[in-house]
């Protein structure tokens, strides 16, 4: 049979997977020897994990910590901002506030801004950066603020977020679960979901990703799940 966790082949005479050591828990009838061996494998796996090449690479490169907070320009991502600020304060990291203006026509430099579609010019980005700076520094008034930087780019959000995370070698990405595409149809709290951007970023990012939901959404998510939304 195959291991349900790592898909490694398990020989018939064996009771557990020799690759991932299967489960943390100990079965009642498991012989002491097997448990010891599993424990050893798990320990070795962990050593491998922390010694993994990317970890090593990041360790020596990271003198400073960086948290990438991705905003969607709506107050709904404020919960994620709160989490990002807390994290940044906690580990004395630089907080990068990042927004990606979506390119609708993927061939041309046209992007979607609050004023509708426009060409991606320097003015558009300057304006965006200024308002982001204003909005978020106002939130941190009279509080110890972490080191902050505002960045904006255009493109497909998840691609630019992952690209930025790789480029800046950030320690963590913090973002909301999904955003509004069309301001006319706002958040539908009845129908919470994980947006395309959050999905792709969490799958492809080079670092851990924290997706921070608002309490309202979490509540409706739970309702949805209990109503049997998932197959």
């Amino acid at each position: 049979m195959n291991c349900p966790i790592c898909n490694n082949t398990i020989n018939e005479n064996e009771t557990f997977c020799r690759k991932c050591a299967w489960s943390i828990l100990r079965a009642d009838n498991e012989p002491e020897q097997d448990y010891e061996e599993r424990f050893k494998i798990a320990k070795k796996n962990w050593e491998r994990l922390i010694a993994c090449e990317c970890e090593a690479r990041y360790r020596h490169l990271h003198k400073e910590h960086k948290i990438l907070f991705c905003t969607d320009l709506y107050a709904s991502s404020d919960y994620a901002f709160k989490a990002a600020v807390d994290l940044a304060r906690e580990c004395d990291a630089e907080l990068i506030i990042y927004h990606v203006l979506e390119s609708r026509h993927r061939y041309s430099g046209q992007i979607i801004t609050a004023d509708g579609e426009t060409w991606a010019s320097k003015e558009v980005f300057d304006k965006l950066r200024t308002s982001l700076q204003k909005y978020y520094s106002a939130k941190l008034e009279n509080q110890p603020a972490p080191k902050m930087r505002v960045e904006a780019r255009s493109g497909i959000p998840w691609i630019e977020i992952v690209r930025m995370a790789r480029k800046e070698k950030v320690d963590m990405i913090v973002m909301g679960p999904y955003s509004i595409r069309d301001p006319k149809n706002g958040f539908d709290l009845e129908k919470p979901r994980l947006g395309e951007t959050a999905k792709q970023v969490s799958l492809r990012a080079p670092c851990p990703v924290a997706i921070v939901t608002s309490p309202d959404q979490r509540l409706s998510l739970e309702q949805q799940t209990s109503a049997g939304e998932e197959k």
């Binding site: 026509h105 061939y107 041309s108 430099g109 046209q110 060409w119």
Partner: peptide
């Protein structure tokens, strides 16, 4: 036509 973008959409 595609890079000409929105005005020609």
């Amino acid at each position: 036509f595609i890079p000409m973008g929105g005005p020609y959409r």
